[in-house]
Design a protein around this nucleic acid. Structure first.
Lengths: 229, 229
DNA sequence: TGCTGCAAGATTGTGGAACAATCAATTGGA
DNA sequence: TCCAATTGATTGTTCCACAATCTTGCAGCA
């Protein structure tokens, strides 16, 4: 062991990443990931002991993660009932989108006005490439990851820490998981392209408008009839 | 016990309230209350065992409450460190206010356009009375409660459940606790009055503007020099 | 004096046992 | 067929144990 350790020192950049992430974090991220990749669906019940074994942690960690997820609007907690992944009826879906519109407008206005070509150009371009790449391949969750990256980069450019904290708390995760984002990718890509272009020009009003237009497109893609798309 | 029970049946409306609120809820609300009433201050360290004895619960409940409070932006969690009540430097305070402005604008637009005199008039009037009452007496926390009630009523009129969920997650609690809302009550009351008037008229644009003006007033009251007001 | 480093104490991280309280499903009876 | 009681599953809560980590204070040394 000594020798092996000397021969190939452990990759601390990875080790720290893994060891620093506590058990609560593991459950928290695991559930978000499982939701994003379709292994869990809105409405699904989550049994504490199942999750404990699934993520190889104690029941404690599961309960703490549930509180965190509940505060983030990912699960619903009801006393003496198994937590359930949040489910949105059509009305509440539209309410979520109204909030998303306002927050996105602020985020994009902020990003456009603080955009600095020197500093941000590369990141934005990379983001568009990831979206195109994710669109080409058809792996489940790849597009979700690219989209998440897209918003993260824009929020970072905008620099508003409170917005960075709150934006992911909007119930968009649930919408994405509940209404399968089928065949609309073409439209979406054009939206994202328009947003990136406006931000790249430092055009705050244009970026805000592009964001609102995008949310409108998502709104229009919510079916009128079926409870779940 | 049988006879006593028959003679005076227990007040279930109170009992349910008490028994339904679990231990996590007790800690969660307790800390928000203590923060609101000045018994805790931003930056303060919270030791698990102290909180456990303070609220007469187990360490588990405290930890679950911490996760919830962290997701709500009330405390900061760092690994192997005692949780601390969130502290805002001046820059982040202004960022919080930018988010608050956008969300308040949406909330008031929504409330004004959905306002129904028959249904909402009494609640709005009561709200203003509470604000005036809280302004007159000088009990610590009374004004905070009245303000909280004010926003709750407006959010209910607006009817957007996602906004009702997210609005209290904005870091205004911290701002109120950190920058003592001294001697500005006169101005604040006029602001609230203007908001209520606009909403009562169903004037969405006016209500939104009144909200933005109010946030501007709060912004202007943040001192430039001292880290803590 | 002032600094370094170590040792002791305090605090968090985590799992697990135990038991009450409550819910859900099934079964038995009217 | 429908109601009700039992039973099994699940959550709510506390307490304990122990490792990991941080903090503090003290002692020794330059």
């Amino acid at each position: 062991m000594e020798l092996a350790s000397v021969a190939r020192p452990p990759d601390t950049s990875e080790m720290i990443e893994v060891s620093q992430a506590g058990t609560v974090e593991r459950v928290y991220r695991g559930i978000l990931r499982d939701l994003e990749e379709g292994r869990m669906v809105p409405g699904q019940r989550l049994v504490e002991t199942d999750l404990a074994t699934r993520y190889a942690v104690g029941r404690n960690a599961v309960r703490e993660a549930m509180q965190r997820l509940a505060a983030r609007g990912v699960v619903d907690l009801a006393r003496n009932r198994s937590p359930a992944i949040r489910w949105l009826d059509r009305a509440e879906t539209l309410e979520v989108l109204d909030v998303a519109e306002a927050m996105t407008a602020l985020a994009l206005r902020s990003a456009a006005s603080r955009y600095d070509r020197e500093r941000d150009s590369a990141a934005l371009q990379k983001t568009m490439e990831l979206l195109l790449e994710a669109d080409r391949i058809d792996e489940i969750g790849a597009f979700s990851r690219a989209r998440r990256h897209f918003y993260r980069v824009l929020l970072e450019i905008g620099g508003n820490r409170e917005l960075q904290r709150l934006y992911p708390a909007i119930g968009m995760h649930i919408i994405y998981a509940q209404y399968q984002t089928r065949r609309l990718r073409g439209i979406r890509l054009a939206d994202y392209r328009a947003i990136i272009d406006a931000v790249s020009l430092g055009d705050a009003a244009g970026a805000e408008q592009a964001g609102r237009t995008h949310v409108d497109h998502v709104r229009a893609s919510i079916p009128h009839d079926a409870p779940a798309g």
